[in-house]
């Protein structure tokens, strides 16, 4: 069957099976930033943004995305340039193995879309569904805080 949606500001039609989870559809269509980590909605590596909110795509039926607006990590950059959030992650050492990074970026992006002035606790809460085994979360949390500050300055 066909699935119509908007992804990273592009209108797309994907061929899907009714039984497909969203992660498999996205990966099959080249959005490989969406990572497998646990298949049970616990690790957050497969996080994507659907209609403005962060969602675990591994436990989300693809069919639910009909007419939805999605953002994956591939959609965060603008005109080939890293977004402020992405830049802060690179610059501040928030990336190690990077496997959880796309999911973390999207959780943070969803937070900043909703709340451009987050407190430390808001950031920690927003990232609490993204397991990272490398960083101990110290630098990712700092990077999100710094990004929020820088984005305010940029406006």
């Amino acid at each position: 069957m066909k699935l119509n949606l908007k992804i990273n500001s592009e209108t797309k039609v994907f061929d899907i099976d009714i039984r497909d989870t969203l992660i498999d559809v996205l990966r099959a269509n080249g959005y490989t930033s969406v990572k497998h980590g646990c298949e049970t909605g616990e690790c957050g590596a497969c996080t994507v943004i659907i209609n403005g909110t962060a969602v675990n795509s591994c436990i989300y039926p693809a069919i639910k995305c009909e007419d939805a607006e999605l953002i994956t990590c591939e959609g965060l950059e603008k005109d080939g340039k890293l977004s402020i959030l992405q830049e802060k992650f690179v610059e501040m050492g928030a990336i190690q193995c990077g496997y959880c990074t796309p999911g973390m970026l999207l959780s943070a992006h969803a937070l900043l879309m909703r709340n451009p002035n987050p407190q430390l606790e808001d950031v920690k809460d927003a990232l609490s569904g993204n397991y990272c085994r490398c960083t101990g979360y110290v630098k990712p949390v700092d990077a999100v805080m710094a990004a929020a500050k820088a984005m305010k300055g940029a406006k």
Partner: peptide
């Protein structure tokens, strides 16, 4: 020095290739 992670950009852009990619 705190040099920029050489694979940092591609990871941040979601373009880093792991085995499954």
């Amino acid at each position: 020095k705190n040099k920029r992670k050489v694979d940092g950009d591609k990871i941040a852009r979601g373009r880093a290739q792991y085995v499954d990619d």
